[in-house]
Nucleic acid binder design. Structure first.
Lengths: 258, 258
DNA sequence: AATGTGCAGATTGTAGACAATCCTAATGTC
DNA sequence: GACATTAGGATTGTCTACAATCTGCACATT
């Protein structure tokens, strides 16, 4: 299964580098990944005793990490009833995608204007990973590589706020997908359609890039809302996707000497 | 002292209405307000025992609320050293304002396209409050009413993600102001310059509105970076601003019957 | 005077306990 | 059968205690 790398999911929320990750940091990343991967299904409760036991921590830091995710919008806290994984239904899809479009197009503009060749090359590499994922015809891998490409594009712009919002948005896109549909479906032509993004970017065609991003995202939300005709071929998730469970988190690394 | 209403600061982070606020909700709002108002100065540590005592709660829920604010970017957590109020120095101002500009211009476009007269009227009312604040010549009141107008504009677009980001951004703008300068300074012509925003909005002039927002925000960041000429007259904070302290939080309301 | 070391007190991070609340199954009534 | 009530177990939210770590100050050394 391919999804944004752990570094990508973990790095963005920090505005300043910490010398070592705290237990809360580690739990937060573990839970975010679990939501992204569908291990914690949308709408499901976070059973604190069970999850804390699985992760090998006490409930205190688990609650603290979960509160961060509540703030992130990935969990919802209801007093007396605990926390559960958020749901994003069809009613909120347009708003989600409007926000996503705002972040991606802003980042695209900043990236084109920055002229940062190394960052652009990173986006090209992310697209190569999408091409490789497409060869597997595994919907989850393709979907993950697709979101990774979008994330990389935003991160390449180098704006911490945009990157941070995008880190959350990709999980929320996953949540929305799981909420709206029991099936995990991606475009069969994901790799070639994204090639246009990379070409526009490499050509430093700001307006062209923004246009293709806009069309792509508008198309996605229309498809998820079932408003698009069926001219786009899609791939579905394999019937027997591997089951992934929560396990004990790694102990925080020893602090560096000195 | 005027700042976005408690409802504005408190309402936005929730994607779903909760029947009653939890202790963690209340503490979070109290702390966010304290950062916004400068009661918790930028860079200052959150002394858990002291703050919990002042708020009349135990350290557990205080830590949980603080973790939300860490995720929000308003506090920074360093393992072993606790949490402290974030700082946003001049190096990060351009990125902060790029993100702010993205959110505000996107919301402005959505609002104009929505044709929602009641929402537009709300922005007009927020401008009237700015006019009233300008009459006081109190920099804090003016600055608060200024940010409230911008927040109201974004919230009026009705996109939960944009509103939520903006709720945090206005606090971050305050943090940046406190970080970069020991003085609290606002434009003396805040009310008339913002009148143009309301006029463009009421005229449903999307491009004109986006342009004036862009120029305004670009001008602000230039001024904060000290790059702008001194042609813009400014007001400073009164020498003896009232001292506000943390106090016990209100007990959560009783749940509604039924 | 500048630097290094040790120690006591303060603070943080986490675990466990307990009261309050929720949830579910069993039972009773119509 | 449908609906209401009750009780017991599960779970949550908060508090307290304790070990680990940090901080600041006093004293020693160069």
């Amino acid at each position: 299964m391919s999804h944004p790398s752990r570094a990508a999911l973990a790095a963005a929320p920090s505005f300043s580098r910490v010398a070592r990750p705290s237990t809360v940091d580690l739990i937060q990343n573990e839970l975010r990944n679990a939501v992204y991967a569908g291990v914690l299904p949308v709408g499901s409760p976070i059973r604190e005793v069970e999850v804390a036991t699985q992760l090998g921590v006490s409930r205190g830091p688990l609650r603290e990490a979960a509160q961060r995710l509540v703030q992130e919008g990935l969990l919802v806290a209801t007093p007396g009833r605990g926390m559960r994984v958020a749901t994003i239904g069809a009613d909120r899809l347009p708003a989600l995608y409007a926000a996503r479009k705002s972040v991606e197009t802003t980042a695209a503009r900043l990236l084109v204007r920055s002229g940062d060749d190394a960052a652009v090359a990173g986006v090209r590499r992310a697209h190569e990973e999408l091409v490789a994922a497409a060869a597997t015809e595994d919907a989850r891998q393709i979907g993950g590589a697709d979101l990774n490409l979008h994330w990389t594009l935003v991160a390449a712009a180098g704006n911490p706020w945009l990157t941070r919002w995008m880190t959350t948005l990709i999980v929320e896109v996953r949540i929305a997908t799981f909420t709206v549909s029991d099936e995990y479906v991606v475009r069969a032509d994901s790799a070639p359609s994204h090639a246009v993004i990379v070409e526009r970017l490499e050509a430093r065609d700001e307006e062209g890039l923004v246009q293709v991003l806009t069309e792509m995202l508008d198309g996605t939300v229309a498809r998820l809302l079932g408003r698009e005709d069926d001219a786009v071929e899609t791939l579905e998730e394999p019937a027997d996707a591997p089951e992934i469970t929560l396990g004990p988190i790694d102990a925080p690394d020893e602090p560096p000497i000195g």
